[in-house]
């Protein structure tokens, strides 16, 4: 897949299978996540949405199949090349996974310090900008342990966006957030896609949120992509389960 208009890269999975012991989580999944578009991944709890995301960033290695980031097969990269490939990806973990030995500000600054040679003042300015975008500018000097679950999630998102990644993988951004903040985060993600041309992959159980963000949605079930399309298309899906899911406006 070629790079997107603003340098964003698409993501492609070819026949990816993954099992943990006897548990088959992904079963011959082939997917195309187009550059510069927002894809929302839906599915019941424990179906392998987080596992799918981790394959894209190379944290999990498929038992079979290949994962492409742009034109690059990341499953065949050595650790050094993989690290370089990862610099264009931002990843928000489902549990935020903030580094709990440093402050929120340092968490956001961490990727910048590692991968850029920006002067300290510039880094501070950018940290402030990213935290402000998620509404956490006052929390810059606080330790992660002192944050609420929702605040942690937003801080994690700020960190994921620190390097203005071409591919932003977000695992349940609105879980634990009030509806207003949740909407603000959705707007932020849409802005990131629009302004930076980033490829967005968002896992969510929040259907309104999925509708707001998603250019297209895919529904994962029992290791396979059960349905794929726009929100309107999924509402008319042949699968009872998918229709049911789309109707639960309140979100799961």
């Amino acid at each position: 897949m070629s790079a997107g208009a603003n340098g964003a890269a698409g993501v492609r999975l070819e026949h990816v299978s993954k099992a943990f012991g006897t548990l088959r989580v992904l079963d011959d999944v082939s997917l195309e996540l187009p550059a510069g578009e927002a894809t929302v991944v839906l599915g019941r709890s424990g179906t392998g949405k987080s596992v799918l995301l981790k394959h894209i960033v190379g944290l999990l290695h498929p038992d079979a199949g290949r994962v492409f980031l742009g034109d690059q097969d990341i499953t065949s990269l050595d650790p050094a090349a993989l690290a370089i490939a990862r610099r264009q990806i931002g990843f928000l973990f489902q549990n935020a996974a903030l580094f709990d030995s440093i402050t929120v500000g340092e968490n956001v600054a961490f990727p910048m310090r590692r991968h850029t040679r920006l002067p300290e003042t510039e880094i501070r300015a950018r940290v402030h900008e990213k935290l402000a975008a998620v509404g956490l500018e006052q929390a810059v000097a606080r330790m992660p342990a002192a944050l609420s679950g929702g605040m942690r999630k937003r801080a994690g998102l700020a960190r994921a966006m620190a390097l203005d990644p071409a591919v932003l993988l977000v695992d349940e951004p609105s879980a634990g957030l009030d509806p207003i903040t949740s909407e603000e985060i959705d707007d932020l993600l849409v802005r990131v896609k629009r302004d930076q041309g980033a490829t967005l992959v968002v896992v969510t159980h929040n259907i309104p949120s999925a509708r707001r963000i998603g250019d297209n949605l895919l529904f994962l079930h029992e290791g396979r992509v059960l349905a794929r399309g726009t929100a309107a298309e999924l509402e008319r899906s042949e699968h009872e389960l998918v229709r049911q899911f789309m109707q639960s406006e309140a979100g799961g």
């Binding site: 981790k54 960033v57 944290l59 650790p79 990843f91 549990n95 996974a97 903030l98 709990d100």
Partner: peptide, 21 residues
């Protein structure tokens, strides 16, 4: 304990995800 906690809270994965060995 520290590395164990980092492991179970996915902080080690998070490091890898921000391209740190």
């Amino acid at each position: 304990a520290e590395l164990g906690a980092m492991k179970v809270t996915e902080q080690i994965d998070a490091l890898e995800a921000v391209a740190v060995d």
